[in-house]
Amino acid sequence: MSKSYDPIIRLEHVSKVYNEYGTKVLALDDISLEISRGEFVSIVGPSGCGKSTMLHCMGLLDRPSSGTIYIEGKDTSKISGKEIALFRGYRLGFVFQNYNLIPRLTVLENVMLPGLIMGKNKKDVEHRAYTLLRETGISHRADHRGIHLSGGEQQKVAIARALINNPVIVLADEPTGALDTKNSLDIMNLLSKINREKRVTFIVVSHDNNISRYGNRKILLKDGKITEDIKKKNRRKYEHT
């Protein structure tokens, strides 16, 4: 049984500098942060404030220019590329703004994909994929191809896919960015439900301040710096007006 670490993610003086056409752009500026297991963290801020960069660094898709990121107590700067891939596959789940479903695969196959990439037994993965599709309310479209689904349905598939390997953290980059209000509401309710029931840590990045209503913690980023970090006592239900 895996050891329970808390905090599950810790950022120590993390900075990220991009070199764009010879000009250095500071995307993250000395960020230090701790996120506990089971938290639902909303990272909000205007476009270009560094929130996606922060998510990518926490998701081990990108390495910080300086500072250290610890996930489950492990210093991620000291692990190899192969281990990082395994870490991403087994411990992290990703939800993207544009869903990133593979169009030629069916809904079921899309959900199964990360499990199969990690070399898990096909039958087990298939069984779990069906369970997740039921939980996300999309099992009736299991045999359809992803591109034939609506945006909201596609995002539900993407959420099921993110959960296939039982991750400890799910990182969602603008999960409602391409959806209408009703579908955004559905998706946020779904994420919130999964967070409550499965105790999976959610880190959601959005430019939409309304999203922050869902989480029990809101981090406001501006110019690569944390300007606000608010922990709420009670989760407020998202209300669309």
Partner: peptide, 12 residues
């Protein structure tokens, strides 16, 4: 982008 997604899902 598909390649990026596969890498995010743990593909080496």
């Amino acid at each position: 982008r598909e390649i990026g997604s596969l890498k995010a899902f743990g593909a080496r």
